[in-house]
Amino acid sequence: MKDNREVKVKCLYGKFSLIVFLFVLLIVHYFVIVLDVGPSNPISIKVNKYTSFYTKTIFAQNWHLFAPDPLIDNQKIYVQIKQKQSSKPGEFEDWIDISTPLIKMNDKSVFTPYNRILRYSDGLAGSFYSGSNTDLVTDVIEKTKDESLKKNLLDKSEESRTEAKTAIYRYASSYALYLTTDPEEIRVKLEATRPQPFSERNTKNYVKKTESNTFEWKKVDKVLPFR
């Protein structure tokens, strides 16, 4: 009888310890998460090395969700193709807009695979322009006096831009292979169109500002053709 009661008491303390342990874990975990995902502040900048180490695997998260500044530029990717033996010489010599067909497909239905693919090309262009610079990284680069840290962050950003450029070529190569069976070289152009400002919304024939970035000719990557 006494043994039974002792087991019950032990069990009760065991359960209570579990509750306390899990709640402490929860508080510490979400404290780290809030420091990592929230707007940057002196504390989050100071502990960023540790918080990002903790969150980089399973708990990696980003809740900017179109904020503070939503994407407002229209990014388009153009491709120019040189063929090996063209049956119709000069067929793909002009710039081909490979973004608009996807936009049209996306507008047709909500249930479409092209929604994500459209985001892929948009994300690539965005990543090429911004590198790996999040708000926090930009803040640190601007404010830090530690030159080695600054150089390290700038190098990482450049690495991200190079990676994005490589991915853009793979994407464009895939589209070139979809358009023609024998592409030899391609050239890519990124075009960003600024929106019509809110104050100018009633101006008819408003000409939107456009910036473009043309890359060099490159051999077509060995990838599957787009579908």
Binding site: P39, L65, P68, D69, I72, N74, S99, P195, F198, R201
Partner: peptide
């Protein structure tokens, strides 16, 4: 956190965010 970021953004603060998003074909 996403609402905090929205408060920090100029177009969210002046209420024109949806206007600008509506101009982006991909979204």
């Amino acid at each position: 956190t996403s609402a905090c970021y929205q408060l920090m953004g100029e177009v969210w603060s002046n209420g024109t965010a949806l206007y600008y998003i509506s101009q982006v074909d991909a979204f």
